[in-house]
Design a protein around this nucleic acid. Sequence first.
DNA 1: GAGCATGATGTAAACGTTTACATCGCTGCA
DNA 2: TGCAGCGATGTAAACGTTTACATCATGCTC
Lengths: 328, 328
Amino acid sequence: MTVKDVAKAAGVSVASVSRALNGHKNMAEDTRERILGVATRMRYMPNGAARSLITKRTHTIGAVLPDLHGEFFSELIRGMDSAARARGLHLLVSSSHGSASEAGDVLRTLRGRVDGLLIMSPHADADMLADNLPPGLPTVLMNTRVSGGNFPAISIDNYGGATAMMRHLVERGYRRIAFIAGPPNNFDADERLLGYRNALAELLPAQHEWVLPGNFSEESGYRAGMDIRANGALPQAIFAANDMMAIGCLFALGEQGINVPDDIALTGFDDIPIARYISPPLTTVRVRIADLGRRALEELAALIEQPDDDVAAPASLGVEIVVRRSCS
Amino acid sequence: MTVKDVAKAAGVSVASVSRALNGHKNMAEDTRERILGVATRMRYMPNGAARSLITKRTHTIGAVLPDLHGEFFSELIRGMDSAARARGLHLLVSSSHGSASEAGDVLRTLRGRVDGLLIMSPHADADMLADNLPPGLPTVLMNTRVSGGNFPAISIDNYGGATAMMRHLVERGYRRIAFIAGPPNNFDADERLLGYRNALAELLPAQHEWVLPGNFSEESGYRAGMDIRANGALPQAIFAANDMMAIGCLFALGEQGINVPDDIALTGFDDIPIARYISPPLTTVRVRIADLGRRALEELAALIEQPDDDVAAPASLGVEIVVRRSCS
DNA sequence: GAGCATGATGTAAACGTTTACATCGCTGCA
DNA sequence: TGCAGCGATGTAAACGTTTACATCATGCTC
């Protein structure tokens, strides 16, 4: 069971067993093989806790996420996992922290269990992180803006995607463009809304903004679609802050006999898989979510290797417009 | 940083600090509060590795999965996570083990890092598990059949779902029913195929089986759809072993001018979210994947509490047919 | 043949906790 | 006064590794 038992069985000291197992030089090749043989015969497996206590390495990185629902997080985890696996790291996921104190507890309990942290959390701000982050633990923020401390961060280019989509719509001749917003105080939602606003002001200074509330859920998109006529005239295009709301909106429009794209154009954001299967297929902003996870993990891994490297400037991930039939 | 520093600062012994932190009885209430105060003021966070080395508890469970792609795994992880969180457990995910030896390595390195294991792996068989599973580590198998050792296991009722779908199709009057199979040697795929075969033999003894090869990918479903006419006449219905293949098949049929459901019925298995958004919406077998993860974790948690309880009989999760327009 | 580098192996300390056991100071009672 | 009992606190061992350092045998050089 322990390295001691193996040592006894092989007639050597624990140090030799450890050396044999960890492939140290300075060992007679035959004793190493003998020890390895004994170890496998005894089904010895080293204890990870003991090992990381002394080496201060867990080969595990912690992913602190707000939620696990939907394709966004599934893709994110997939991206992190693939990069982690390539480096021989494990992934410890922790999700759904209702409050800042709950999120803080999680950060603290991760001390000694992970080599670094990937954080995406609405509760993360400079103070909370300073209070709860184990000091010296490498950390990378994902889609999370922290004003105070300078943490490495990597985000999706929400702002750029939203302005690009607006440019696309304007080029296609649409003028009265409504926006279905995401939840307030959500990093992605805020950036996308800002992109809509600024692009509108710049490209169509004569138009008023037209923002409908939403919360990223299909159902809130449905409600927005049902309310669209409340103000009288229909917009020429609706830009939803994510695909699920666009889909909900599409159903609402269908129920009212409004045809997409003939009567109105509709676009989304994210390019989730469903987007290309609905009819009409949805024009949207493609986000390489898995890449976000992958790159965040890579940056973290680099930080773990070189802890005192300069903090890289916040990076943002490119996005692209994918044009489908929902917008003629 | 360590419990020693806190003890020094508070003018007590390390034992008292530990007791204060872990809420032991037999402590003067005022010293406890003083110690706790010092600890938070110093931003002390206990080291998880040291703690689990002595307590033999990590409060972490390991999830060993074959892959992370797609909604199946995303739902599975979500289910496991929600049950884990409810019990104050963390989730360590490990995926994509190309070979049996690779999967075995993972199992071994998890020794001392987790309190229990949730395994879904095509490489898992009695020998492999006996060789690589840390002895005494509670383990629950998910959708994985292991002939030899008696492990607790919990699976989706693939067989029951497939026969139920066949019964549904026969009731609707379909007779010539083709089946698009999943990848060979895949647990779910095998069970579903067997369900198709047995139901056909029982319900429609006069009909020959009609099995098209596939591998659960959309593209393989597309190929199956393109080949469907190769033998001459069209079947009256196609039952795909999962939804993604059904969707691929739907596109292939569309390209050939074959209308679903007028010319041919089409059904799937899984009820992934996309299934209800395509047109026509897909009749399929609903599988509560998150429940699989949740229940597996609950069984594992029970096993961790009561290690020598009898092994529960392999459980299987109910499924239900959800009828949509793809099958008139 | 003495001295010395070299390479293989052993000894023991260290990592940061928890906890069994020892100690100490009180209180209450005979 | 002396002692049992008890509650609060301290001491030190234990968990299972890794690794700096010590030891030892060996062969080489002069």
